[in-house]
């Protein structure tokens, strides 16, 4: 009335299938990386390090109240950088193109590759600062002791909420180990 009892061979076959499933799931975990990467690109999430597009609707037709912009930079202890903004503060009208320069020095005696990560205060200001060009879009290689200047070009969106009258743009520079 029942199917014949399972043999050792049946058991081993099932064991192999289940082992295969475990291996597939291990690979799946790593496969999630490109999947999420593609998802973020498609949906535009995580776009702080990519150039923005500024349509005319984001540029002000009539002058709005200026926003106080503060520029800052930090380096985590132990990393070989000196970073300073050449402009500390300025006032800009939303919709106006702004360019500021940063000076980055590799203070070590070896070649290093750096990556800058932008940060906004308040964090909610991030979506209203549209960066057209930024040294944070790419990794930068530095010779020992080299100093270079980099521009940041951006527009403060004219849709910026009225209460948001002061924005700080801060960069942290990391070195990218394993690349030179």
């Amino acid at each position: 009335m029942d199917k014949p009892p399972a043999t050792l061979h049946d058991n081993r076959l099932l064991l192999l299938k289940l082992l295969l499933l475990a291996c597939v799931m291990f690979v799946f975990a790593w496969g999630l990386i490109p999947v999420y990467d593609a998802l973020c690109r498609l949906t535009g999430l995580g776009s702080l390090q990519r150039p923005d597009e500024v349509g005319s609707q984001r540029l002000a037709a009539t002058p709005l109240a200026p926003v106080l912009l503060t520029f800052d930079a930090t380096v985590q202890p132990g990393l070989p950088w000196q970073v300073r903004p050449l402009t500390r503060t300025l006032r800009a009208v939303p919709g106006e193109f702004v360019r500021v320069d940063y000076e980055i020095t590799n203070a070590s005696n070896r070649q290093v590759v750096g990556q800058a990560i932008p940060r906004y205060l308040p964090a909610a200001a991030a979506e209203y600062v549209k960066k057209l060009d930024c040294f944070c879009f790419a990794q930068q290689a530095f010779a020992p002791g080299e100093t270079r200047r980099f521009p940041v070009v951006f527009v403060v969106d004219k849709n910026v909420p009225a209460g948001l009258d002061s924005i700080t743009l801060a960069y942290t520079v990391f070195d990218v180990p394993g690349r030179s």
Binding site: L21, A22, M25, F28, A29, W30
Partner: peptide
Amino acid sequence: IIAVMPVLAGVVTM
């Protein structure tokens, strides 16, 4: 367990 423990193993390996 067979479906998700390998995923945990994967992420802690990362």
